[in-house]
Computed example of a mutant assay.
Amino acid sequence: MTLEILTSDVLTPITHGFFTRRGGASSGVFSGLNCGIGSTDQTDIVKINRDRVADALGVEDGAMIGVRQVHSADVAIVTEVPSDRPVADAAVTNIPGLALTVLTADCQPVLFADQEAGVVGVAHAGWRGALDGILEATLNAMETLGARRSSIAAVIGPSISQRAYEVGPEFFETFLTDDPHNARFFANGQGDRLHFDLPAYGLHRLREAGVEQAEWTRHCTYSDEGRFYSYRRSTHAKEADYGRLISAIRL
C-alpha cells in the first residue's frame, strides 16, 4: 500500500509531511506505518517502515534526525548528524539534506519553516510541553539560526481533538493556575469531567508568540483508527502497546 502523507500549503515547497499509518509493514496493534523505535513492535519491521519514510523524504535513514522525547521544553539545534538522539522535544536546523522528525500518537506534531532564511524545525507538543513553552522555545532556537519570527510558518498535524480529550478537574486547575484565560480551551463533560482542546491551545500559543501563519490540519488521531495511532484509544481498548506516527520536514 502507498504511503499517505498529509502536507500543508503554507510549508510548500519545503519537503515535509505528516505520515499516517497507511502503507507500513507492521501488523497486529501496530498495523501500518509504525515508526516507534521505543515500541514493542519488531525492530526489523520498524526499520522497514522508517526506510520507507526516508525514501519518501529523499534522504538516507541516517539523515532522519529524531529526538528522545520526554515532554520537556528543550530544543536540539542540529548542525550535523548527532551520534545519538538528543534528549529534547523539538529540533531545528539550517542544514540542507537533514530531515527532522518527531513521533506522536495524540500529542501535537508541529512543523515549522522560515523559507526565506532556510531554517526548519519540528516539535512534539503534548499538553505538558505546550504548557511549559516547547513551541516558543522552538521559535527561539530557529531565530538563533537566522530565522525571523514574522516569517515563520507553523502547522500542527494530526492530534487528539477536544471531543475525545476528556480530563479531570486537577488538569483544569493546572491550566487555570498558569493563566485564568485558559478556561476558554475547556468544555464541560459528564460530572466533573471536562474536554480539553489541545490543538486550539497550541494555535493560541503560536499566535501569541508572533507566528502569523499557523494552522492545524484538523485531523483527530483518536476518532480515525484507520489512519492514525492513538495512545488514548489503545488505552481504552486495553491494548498492550500502540504505534507511533512520524512527522518530518527537511530543507
Rank of each mutant, 00 (worst) to 15 (best):
M1A: 05
I5Q: 05
L6V: 15
T7Y: 09
S8C: 11
D9I: 12
T20R: 04
R22I: 02
R22N: 01
G23F: 01
G23H: 02
S27T: 12
S27P: 11
V29G: 00
S31H: 10
L33G: 04
N34M: 15
S39R: 05
S39K: 06
Q42W: 11
T43K: 14
I45A: 09
I48R: 05
R50A: 02
V53H: 12
V53G: 01
L57S: 08
G62I: 07
G62T: 06
A63Y: 09
A63R: 08
M64C: 15
V67A: 06
V75A: 07
V75W: 03
A76Y: 04
V78Q: 04
T79H: 14
E80I: 10
S83N: 14
D84S: 09
R85P: 01
D89Y: 03
D89K: 06
D89W: 07
A90Y: 01
N94A: 07
P96L: 07
G97D: 14
V102D: 00
A105M: 11
C107A: 08
Q108Y: 08
Q108C: 15
P109H: 02
P109W: 00
A113F: 15
V120M: 01
V120D: 00
G121L: 15
V122A: 09
A123E: 02
H124L: 15
G126P: 14
G126D: 13
G129E: 00
L131G: 04
D132S: 13
E136V: 05
E136W: 02
A141Y: 11
E143Y: 05
E143D: 09
A147W: 11
A147P: 11
A147I: 09
R148P: 09
I152D: 04
I156A: 11
P158C: 00
R163A: 13
R163W: 09
G168L: 12
G168S: 07
F175C: 05
F175Y: 03
L176K: 11
T177R: 13
D179H: 06
P180G: 01
N188D: 14
N188V: 12
G191K: 14
F196L: 06
D197E: 08
G202Q: 03
L203E: 01
L203N: 00
L206V: 08
E208G: 10
A209T: 00
A209P: 09
A209W: 05
V211F: 02
V211P: 10
E215N: 11
T217G: 13
H219V: 06
H219C: 15
C220H: 07
T221H: 04
F228S: 01
Y231A: 10
S234V: 06
Y242D: 02
G243H: 07
G243T: 03
S247I: 07
L251Q: 06
